[in-house]
């Protein structure tokens, strides 16, 4: 083998990835940029499946956690589509009217690559364009969406040597502060765009396009992480509790994760052939102030649970409400989150 005579490309790349990760983990990615944790624009923070590894034939409920940083009062206005022909007026308050829609129908794309879905979706919709009922199963609106996994999702995929048979489903979504309409491809090559009332194309601050993928296995299951709440300065903050702090103060924020919810991943075996633990990390977001770190390790596959996964929040000097979110991911697509409001007075 080539590895006997020269460094394996594989090992070099993995080492390179590790080196990059080390560097990024140490220095942060562009200190001059707004961090991911700062919610000042229209943002999607997570999509959660009630069953991260649904079996073929099962139905999955998807829920989205999102926030509009440009709507300072109410972060989650209604997202139901208006009746056809009626103008889309913003609801009471200062929040913006938003459109959120879902699009399913991509299964087992080539190479498990999201961008290989586009051709498949085009074929699917071309075949169903004359049947609104058929189209309706693939399209949804609002913060939740249900998807039925095809019965033959696993069986219709060609087997891959050395790999447990599985199926893969992609669901796309778009969150837009305007209207999502077909358009000439822009620089990103997408054949649609988010347009404002004047027909202008809106950018990344007002439009989020993304995807959520879930795997299906015959035997393997997966559950979402269990989040028991949020600590601020070590004190549990329950739902509805809205503690106050002085302007400009710094508080410790830490999501409470049940270590027992860390599962073993039968697809990632260690050198002894035993299943490793899931990786788990917590991403923090705040609508005001500044977090010292955006994402922290909660559980390592080899080192185990890391209790030191909190962050510090420098509260703003202006009075007002600050929304704080903590999203816990595991490395198999499981998601859980917690949201709390704190006041600066």
């Amino acid at each position: 083998m080539m590895c006997a005579t020269s460094p394996s490309l594989f090992a070099r790349l993995l080492g390179g990835v590790a080196a990059v990760g080390l560097a990024l983990g140490l220095t942060g990615c562009g200190e001059e940029f707004d961090p991911q944790s700062k919610l000042s624009t229209l943002r999607v923070m997570a999509v959660r499946a009630d069953n991260p590894y649904p079996h073929p034939g099962e139905t999955v409920q998807l829920d989205m956690l999102w926030y509009d940083g440009k709507s300072p009062v109410d972060a989650q206005p209604p997202l139901r589509p208006p009746p056809l022909g009626e103008p889309r007026l913003p609801p009471a308050g200062e929040s913006r009217a938003l459109r959120l829609f879902w699009l399913s129908g991509c299964y087992n794309p080539l190479g498990d690559l999201y961008y290989e879905c586009f051709a498949q979706l085009a074929d699917t919709f071309a075949a169903a364009q004359d049947d609104p009922a058929a189209l309706a199963q693939y399209v949804g609106f609002g913060p939740s969406f249900q998807v039925k996994v095809p019965d033959d999702l696993i069986s219709r995929r060609p087997p891959q040597e050395g790999r447990t048979p599985y199926g893969l489903s992609f669901v796309f979504f778009a969150l837009c502060a305007g209207e999502v309409l077909p358009a000439e491809p822009g620089a990103d090559g997408l054949p649609f765009a988010c347009l404002d009332s004047s027909g202008n194309r809106l950018g990344a601050d007002d439009f989020v396009f993304g995807y959520f993928a879930f795997y299906s296995y015959d035997q393997i299951t997966n559950t979402n992480p269990k989040v028991d709440g949020l600590l601020i300065d070590g004190v549990p903050v329950g739902e509805g509790d809205e503690p106050s702090f002085s302007p400009g103060s710094t508080v410790d924020v830490k999501v409470v994760v049940d270590p027992a919810s860390v599962e073993y991943n039968p697809l990632a075996l260690d050198a002894s052939g035993n299943a490793q633990q899931e990786m788990m990390w917590a991403a923090y977001y705040a609508s005001g102030g500044k977090l010292d770190k955006g994402s922290r390790l909660v559980n390592d596959a080899t080192q185990g649970f890391n209790d030191d996964h909190g962050v510090k929040l420098d509260l703003p000097s202006e009075a007002g409400a600050v929304e704080v979110f903590a999203v816990v991911h595991d490395s198999r697509g499981g998601v859980q989150w917690v949201r709390r409001t704190v006041w600066v007075k």
Binding site: A11, A18, G21, L22, L24, Q36, W281, S295, D300, Q303
Partner: peptide
Amino acid sequence: ELLSKDTAEVDPVLTGNLRFRT
């Protein structure tokens, strides 16, 4: 060998126990 407790924004896989020996 080191344990990185911060995850990278570009890919959260870039975290955890980094071990390198050649």
